[in-house]
Computed example of a mutant assay.
Amino acid sequence: MGIHISLHRLQGNYSIEHPDWDWVRHAGDRQFPSVLHANPMVQAPDDDQLLRPKDVNQLREAINASGIDHPERFHQLADILDREPNTWIYLGY
């Protein structure tokens, strides 16, 4: 089973192709949902399919502790979420 991890903005332009995020499948992507959901999540106000961690630093710690393939990819995702509070994660199965 493959998974697509995409980022969506709630303000401004809606985009699955965030300029700093590669949404194409990569090694580690199938591991990411379990790392993500090991932390408290928040759902987007008008879209229950969009989510983000309550605490981005906890996500970073979980990435480090997980042994996930290509952790730098998911630290990049955490960096985007940290600097853009209106950006949300969509997991497409």
Rank of each mutant, 00 (worst) to 15 (best):
M1N: 09
M1A: 13
M1F: 09
M1S: 15
I3G: 02
I3M: 13
I3A: 01
I3Y: 01
H4V: 13
I5D: 01
I5C: 01
S6C: 11
S6M: 13
L7R: 01
L7Y: 04
H8Q: 14
R9N: 12
R9Q: 10
G12P: 04
N13T: 11
Y14M: 12
Y14V: 13
Y14K: 10
S15H: 04
S15Y: 02
S15A: 05
I16H: 05
I16M: 08
E17G: 01
H18S: 14
H18A: 11
H18Q: 10
P19M: 05
P19V: 10
P19C: 03
W21Y: 07
D22S: 09
D22I: 05
W23A: 08
W23F: 13
W23V: 03
V24C: 08
V24K: 12
R25I: 09
H26K: 15
A27L: 09
A27D: 14
A27G: 05
A27P: 08
D29Q: 02
R30H: 06
Q31D: 13
Q31F: 02
P33T: 05
V35S: 02
V35F: 00
L36S: 00
L36M: 03
H37D: 05
H37K: 11
A38Q: 04
N39M: 08
N39T: 12
N39E: 11
P40E: 07
M41A: 09
V42S: 10
V42Q: 11
V42T: 14
Q43Y: 08
Q43M: 04
A44R: 03
A44G: 12
P45R: 13
D46I: 08
D46P: 00
D47A: 09
D47I: 00
D47E: 08
Q49M: 08
L51F: 10
R52M: 09
P53F: 07
P53I: 11
P53D: 08
P53Y: 06
K54Y: 01
K54E: 15
K54P: 00
D55M: 05
D55K: 05
V56Y: 06
V56T: 13
N57Y: 09
N57A: 13
Q58D: 14
Q58Y: 06
E61L: 08
A62G: 11
A62S: 14
I63N: 03
N64K: 12
A65L: 06
A65F: 01
A65E: 12
S66L: 02
G67S: 00
I68R: 03
I68Q: 02
D69S: 11
H70I: 03
H70W: 05
P71H: 01
P71A: 03
E72H: 15
E72R: 14
R73I: 14
R73T: 13
R73E: 15
F74M: 08
F74G: 03
H75C: 05
H75S: 07
H75Y: 08
Q76E: 15
Q76N: 15
L77D: 01
D79K: 09
D79P: 06
I80V: 14
L81R: 06
D82S: 15
R83S: 15
R83D: 10
R83Q: 11
E84R: 02
E84L: 03
E84D: 14
P85V: 02
P85R: 03
T87S: 10
W88F: 14
W88C: 04
W88A: 00
I89D: 00
I89G: 00
Y90P: 01
Y90D: 06
L91R: 07
L91V: 14
L91C: 15
G92R: 08
